[in-house]
Design a protein around this nucleic acid. Sequence first.
DNA 1: ATCCTATACTAGACATTGTCTAAGTCAGTT
DNA 2: AACTGACTTAGACAATGTCTAGTATAGGAT
Lengths: 138, 138
Amino acid sequence: MSDLLERLRERGWRMTAQRRVVAEVLVGEHVHLTADEIHARAAARLPEISRATVYNTLGELVSLGEVIEVTTVKRAKTYDPNAHRPHHHLVCVHCGAVRDVHPTGNPISDLPASERFGFTLRDAEITYRGVCPGCSAG
Amino acid sequence: MSDLLERLRERGWRMTAQRRVVAEVLVGEHVHLTADEIHARAAARLPEISRATVYNTLGELVSLGEVIEVTTVKRAKTYDPNAHRPHHHLVCVHCGAVRDVHPTGNPISDLPASERFGFTLRDAEITYRGVCPGCSAG
DNA sequence: ATCCTATACTAGACATTGTCTAAGTCAGTT
DNA sequence: AACTGACTTAGACAATGTCTAGTATAGGAT
């Protein structure tokens, strides 16, 4: 967590109160938040922080590889601070809840050359869809 | 293609000019279009078709399982008419191009029970990310 | 410690994508 | 041919994300 701030500073990031707060919100809760939720939590500590800054900061963190942008079925993207531990996602089709999961195997090796169409593969993301215990109980 | 219209009629779909045009646009080009692109192409044939109708029709086709909604990195969802042939997607991180691909193996069997957290799994979607030949040449 | 400047922040307008509503229209049935 | 519930329309609204012009500030230089 202060690891994150350390790494960022080493990469020449100028440290500001706004960026610190956004980073703290992200790492503080190990859940997937939307930009708006992050803004709300950040504003609780730093009331004048603007939406634009939150969006910019998130974009930078994604570019730096410190945070992963997850696009689910919901309108808004969510941000996953767990970027350094490779993982995939399990989504409840009913309530939208998201969990990080770790399947065995490597999807990239499952894609034969004939199916790569000349692409240089970078990574693969698996989204498992299902119904969570809470929703199937209802 | 007229298969699609057949199936829909059998399921009690009321057939209208608007729905026919949207279905034809979808099946006519085997690419992934956004709702707006579909609207533009539909309007070329049926100028007074409204955005709401396109959105409604796409939503119905998705509910009926005739079309798959694909959420990529881009803002807008895209619609994939290839719903009856299970497949996954290969996306160019540079230009956003999407191809359908068929990896070997079954991702669902790669998710051990201990990683399912009580979810009832329905399906899994793999998104491969890489750079397409055109973009890596540039 | 102070100054300087590139970088970052803010407010708010704007853009894009998707949803909803009220009123009018039409497909398919009788 | 009339009827009726389902469909469509225009446009307002909502949610999410981007951009700009002006202001503030972090961190290096002095």
